[in-house]
Design a protein around this nucleic acid. Structure first.
Lengths: 259, 259
DNA sequence: CCGCGATAATACCAATAAAATACCAATAGC
DNA sequence: GCTATTGGTATTTTATTGGTATTATCGCGG
């Protein structure tokens, strides 16, 4: 059943309510978008299609669609069609600029230092093999450090890099990215996932909070220009002490060539 | 049976679907590559061959092929032919398409719906007065809803809007932003803060998890083009069920170290 | 009663995309 | 080099899409 059909089904269901036709239709479309039956970038059936299938005049359809265009949830292109507008959530991803830890701390006038927890070569875990594309005979370099601001521990950062790229973890200075860049392996893109977890005993002790307290769990995968995965980092932040700030911006209709 | 013939077979099968010819053809070629019928480095039949065998114009064939070239799946060499791109180039393509939460849910066939928890006018809290710039004699419209995916509660969303902008919260359809936009108060920018908290009793009960479990706490302030604050939303997501995904672009050499 | 707005229908205009035709330019093979 | 074959491009036609002006109808209040 196509998304378009679902709209019509919804329309018929909500029918005979006495309300103006264009309001019924507007609500049906609105819900279809809201439930994700038709996602951002997807095309609506043409005004004429909707009109004939719903057996109402095209101008009435148009009135409903126009309202939603004014409301910003639909976008129309003359000669082309009507499309679902990009959502806030969608724009978040592409345009968000997460302020970095050090930037943020510096702005607050806090001193930042790191304490090494671990630097060495290990046999890779299944996770690491998957993400970094390693075989079980290769080694992985693990780098773990505790981030401390104003003598308060704020985060634990654990990075995994293929040993072929970083054969000597001990040689890293203060910046992992500088070390990678010097061997010509500078990441140009990264994908981050943020979730929340209750801190385990070990991590809680390091961050000097009681076990079970909420923490931000962040996984980041960095890519080279070639598309190869270069680094895999898992960090845990104290939820009470750190805020991630993101600025979002809404833009015009995006280019979606592929359904 | 040659690889080329398989494409044509696939094309005929998928025919009469009403979709534009070049889309049908593009899909057929894409599938042939994905199934490995034609591997990296292999040559496609010439545009003219495809055109005559499929009995469509060469320009239409070209349109389909061009799209795949832009997508990095095919490579063309003038005077030589069209070839399937080496795999490395294609990895990035698939990875650069991040799926948002709602998109993800929709793709997995999950239904996303909302349950209203509250819609009404109230005397503003100190927080709300500060952020929205209200005086103590003005009212604030509060809109709260529970977001549910596949009968699993995922988030609680509480929005506060000045009553002068949204005098009748009951009249909101399924989308708050559409309601705001239709009155000419469409937000164009937003700032978000993400942190982690342990869920309180009330929120935990709504989200159907034990109290004290970690949750993502997101505060968002939306601005009009004029710079005026239009909306203030506080949301709590189940930490175990929601991932906030962000793509970062790392630019310029010698960037500062990141969190 | 009349006027006015909201609702809805009809008919026509304008922009765009889809597809076809004809011709140009680079490459491979001899 | 020449030539057949390949991709590259410009131009045009047609169908489909949204955009708009005009008119008819209903309901309600002056």
């Amino acid at each position: 059943m196509s998304a378009a059909d679902q709209i019509f089904a919804m329309l018929k269901e909500s029918s005979q309510s006495g309300a103006p036709l264009y309001l019924q239709l507007r609500k049906s479309i609105e819900e279809a978008v809201n439930r994700g039956l038709i996602g951002p970038g997807d095309a609506l059936p043409s005004e004429r299609d909707i009109a004939s299938k719903a057996d109402i005049s095209r101008v009435t359809v148009r009135k409903a669609v126009q309202d939603l265009v004014k409301g910003g949830i639909l976008v129309q292109r003359h000669g082309s069609g009507t499309f679902v507008a990009p959502r806030m959530e969608r724009v978040e991803q592409s345009l968000s600029r997460l302020t970095s830890f050090t930037e943020d701390m510096a702005r607050r006038g806090m001193s930042v230092r790191s304490v090494w927890l671990d630097r060495g070569l290990y046999a890779p875990s299944p996770d690491e093999m998957m993400v970094l594309g390693l075989s079980s005979t290769e080694l992985v370099a693990r780098v773990a450090r505790l981030r401390v601001a104003n003598d308060t521990p704020l985060a634990i950062e654990r990075a995994a890099i293929s040993a072929s790229v970083l054969p000597d973890p001990e040689a890293i200075g203060s910046s992992l990215y500088a070390a990678l860049g010097m061997t010509g392996n500078r990441p140009v893109r990264a994908v981050q996932r943020i979730s929340a977890t209750n801190l385990g005993d070990a991590d809680a002790r390091l961050l000097e909070v009681p076990p079970g307290v909420a923490g931000l769990h962040i996984e980041r995968i960095s890519y080279l220009a070639s598309g190869k995965v270069i680094e895999f980092t898992r960090s845990v932040y104290r939820g009470d002490a750190y805020d991630f700030v993101a600025e979002l911006r809404l833009t015009g209709p995006g280019e979606e060539s592929r359904p």
